[in-house]
């Protein structure tokens, strides 16, 4: 479903990603871990198409199309969802209005008729339950005055509603208490399916107690330096990242 080939990304001429290779097949859940500042969020932003993230080399294939050739919105319309670490606040735009506009723009791109008010409302009510989001919250402006947990829950709600084929979740677990973590994890598991793929970017093992990954990758110095089964996450939790660094430095020499 997703195939990243030798991806190099620079921000203001500083190279952050130095040749990332990653393949995610339909039905799989991958976790990307790694210490701070190694390029995890840059990877998510580059896939989203954020301005200022310059791809100097490589390609990102998604269902046979190179995402890098598409506009930000077309990447989303093709079925890619990015869950943000720090979702922005948009005063004056209600979540309902936001999501209805998004959903109908996506449907238009796919040649489907727009949902009318009643159809949308039904869908929204259904998806709200997935993340235990109250009506009160969905009538509020997007993320405005939301707590950290509410913002993350709102990201998962948007994901549930837009029903993407590929979700890349950038530290969706950071700043969550144990209850919010459970809700967010349930939301993510809700999306799992044979024709779906999920990439979870995280610092901690604890999210992976709820969302069991098929593969765990370690991103270090702009590259994926180690990949392994779910047990790798436990090992990282226990031993930290120093041994990865040592191994990487040794191999470099």
């Amino acid at each position: 479903m997703l195939k990243i080939d030798n991806l190099h990304v620079s921000i203001k001429e500083r190279e952050i990603l130095k040749g990332v290779n990653l393949e995610v097949k339909a039905g799989e859940v991958h976790a990307i871990m790694g210490p701070n500042g190694t390029g995890k969020s840059t990877l998510a932003s580059a896939i989203a198409g954020k301005q200022g993230y310059e791809v100097t080399q490589g390609s990102v294939w998604f269902k046979g199309k190179n995402l890098l050739d598409l506009s930000i919105e077309d990447r989303a319309r093709e079925g890619v969802f990015i869950g943000f670490q720090y979702p922005v606040e948009i005063p004056g735009v209600s979540i309902a209005n936001f999501m209805r506009t998004a959903l109908n723009e996506i449907r238009k791109y796919r040649g489907l008729d727009p949902l009318n008010g009643a159809q949308f409302l039904k869908l929204m009510t259904e998806k709200q339950k997935v993340v235990e989001l109250t009506d009160k919250l969905s009538n509020r402006s997007v993320n405005e005055g939301f707590s950290g947990g509410e913002k993350k829950r709102n990201e998962i709600f948007q994901m549930a509603l837009l029903d993407p084929s590929l979700a890349i979740l950038d530290e969706t677990d950071s700043g969550l208490d144990i209850d919010a973590l459970r809700v967010v994890a349930n939301g993510i598991n809700h999306l799992r399916g044979e024709d779906k793929a999920i990439v979870v970017i995280t610092h901690y093992q604890r999210l992976l107690d709820y969302i069991v990954p098929d593969v765990v990758h370690v991103l270090f110095d702009g590259k994926i330096v180690k990949s392994g089964p779910k047990e790798l996450a436990l090992e990282l939790e226990e031993r930290g990242y120093d041994w990865i660094k040592d191994e990487y430095e040794k191999n470099k020499i």
Binding site: G49, E73, F98, E105
Partner: peptide, 14 residues
């Protein structure tokens, strides 16, 4: 707001 525009576009809004 550029950040807000980016956020909306990542959800498929032109």
């Amino acid at each position: 707001d550029e950040e807000a525009l980016y956020y909306l576009r990542t959800r498929g809004i032109g």
